[in-house]
């Protein structure tokens, strides 16, 4: 089926604004996790490759800009935890990197570009369980497009986008795709 691209859902400026908003929400939330302690020091932003990783780094940069605190960042590759490998086939792995302080007893915020079925997040939760025991795990996504297949919801959402199943949501980031924008395309993947 041919693919048609609709006008951009989020422009580069929209993406930057959304990241700033989530950064502010994270600063507020972190303060409530361990009363009496510096919440941001307990925060770890863990990106889910591919595009969750640069998003996590951007969030950390903005949090530092707003609060002056350097936040730990990691990545967790979920490929080896997926339950749909048979259907999707194998792919090359990406790095899994945990901060030096580990994730035990900290607030881990998983960062991904699009929340769809929830299966990636489930795989990421399984991976985190093997990597340590966080005090709490939350989820931040740039776009929530609905169609959940698991009881999973995001704590921080850049934009809720009602879509049909046949549509594709494509997040482009400067780090991976040359420019920031979020597109909705009609039809199956090529």
């Amino acid at each position: 089926m041919a693919r048609t691209t609709l006008p951009a859902l989020l422009s580069a400026a929209d993406v930057a604004r959304v990241i700033d908003r989530i950064a502010h929400q994270l600063i507020e939330r972190a303060a409530t996790v361990h009363p009496g302690r510096d919440g941001l020091a307990d925060l770890v932003l863990v990106g889910i490759p591919t595009r969750g990783a640069p998003l996590a780094r951007r969030l950390a940069t903005r949090i530092e800009a707003f609060s002056g605190v350097t936040v730990d960042v990691g990545t967790v590759d979920i490929t080896l935890y997926r339950d749909d490998l048979r259907r999707r086939g194998v792919r090359a792995l990406e790095p899994t990197v945990m901060p030096d302080g580990g994730i035990d007893d900290r607030l881990v915020v998983l960062v991904d570009d699009v929340l769809f079925s929830g299966r990636s997040v489930r795989a990421a939760l399984d991976a985190l369980r093997d990597l340590g025991r966080p005090q709490a795990v939350q989820l931040a996504v740039l776009v929530d497009r609905g169609h959940r297949e698991l009881p999973i919801r995001a704590d921080y959402v850049g934009k809720n986008v009602p879509t049909s199943r046949s549509q594709q949501v494509r997040v482009h980031l400067a780090e991976t795709d040359g420019a920031d924008e979020v597109l909705v395309t009609e039809g199956e993947d090529a």
Binding site: D77, L80, A92, L93, E94, P95, T96, V97
Partner: peptide, 12 residues
């Protein structure tokens, strides 16, 4: 691909 995958697994 095999060698890169092995490296990622080792690191993970």
């Amino acid at each position: 691909l095999v060698l890169d995958t092995a490296a990622q697994i080792e690191q993970a």
